[in-house]
């Protein structure tokens, strides 16, 4: 464990909690892409199946349960509890165009052709593009609630911190995982446009609105 990975995990946890509280407190999931949240639930489910097979640490196991629990709670609130506030008309990204090719890629490019490893690879690839429906929805509505931009900021920051963690681990531990690194770079690049808007607008107290 190193400082980048720890702050990365805490940033990820913060994002997940911010979103959960936003929906719970405002009793509304307006502006939130349910499709992205389903993809995140799928990412955690396919990645954390090793909960059944191996124990790494109490931290690792407890965080995995928290991530999975919050992801499904968020999906439940969007599609069941606060269904009336779900903006389906703007959440129209065709996720099958992501899931199917990525499923194929996970079979072709992986570290080991075993079920758990292919599912892990699928989850790494999927996570790198899982935010696209959410970013697409914001570009369609032309704006985002400020709390949603904070959620996106911490979510984007977490993988950027993981990139630094991988540099650290390569240098000090000789560890590198090319699949995770390439997917992590793609994932972080997808947030660059948002990061620019977040820093130049939201941090200056303005509302995040895109030139529609």
């Amino acid at each position: 464990m190193n400082i980048f990975r720890l702050t990365g995990d805490l940033s990820h946890l913060a994002a997940i909690i911010i979103l959960l509280l936003k929906i719970w407190k405002t009793r509304s999931c307006a502006g939130i892409s349910g499709k992205s949240q389903i993809l995140f639930a799928l990412v955690f489910t396919t990645r954390y199946l090793d909960l059944l097979t191996s124990f790494i640490s109490l931290y690792n196991t407890s965080m995995k349960f928290i991530y999975i629990g919050c992801a499904y709670a968020t999906v439940y609130m969007i599609y069941a509890k606060f269904k009336a506030t779900y903006d389906g008309n703007h959440d129209t990204f065709r996720v099958e165009f992501l899931v199917v090719p990525i499923g194929g890629l996970a079979f072709l490019v992986n570290h080991d052709f075993s079920p758990l490893e292919i599912l892990w690879t699928f989850s790494i690839y999927l996570e790198s593009v899982a935010i696209l429906p959410q970013l697409f929805m914001i570009s369609k509505t032309g704006e985002a609630e400020t709390i949603t931009t904070h959620y996106l900021f911490f979510l984007g920051l977490y993988r950027a911190l993981y990139l630094m963690n991988w540099i650290w681990r390569f240098y000090f531990e000789g560890f590198f995982d090319m699949i995770a690194i390439v997917a992590g770079v793609v994932q972080t690049i997808l947030y660059c446009d948002f990061f620019y808007l977040y820093v130049t607008k939201v941090l200056k107290g303005k509302k995040l609105s895109l030139p529609a």
């Binding site: 995990d9 090793d50 191996s54 690792n60 570290h111 560890f175 590198f176 995770a180």
Partner: peptide, 10 residues
């Protein structure tokens, strides 16, 4: 530099 496939990260 060895590649490790035991995934110890979240």
């Amino acid at each position: 530099r060895q590649l490790i496939t035991s995934h110890d990260e979240l």
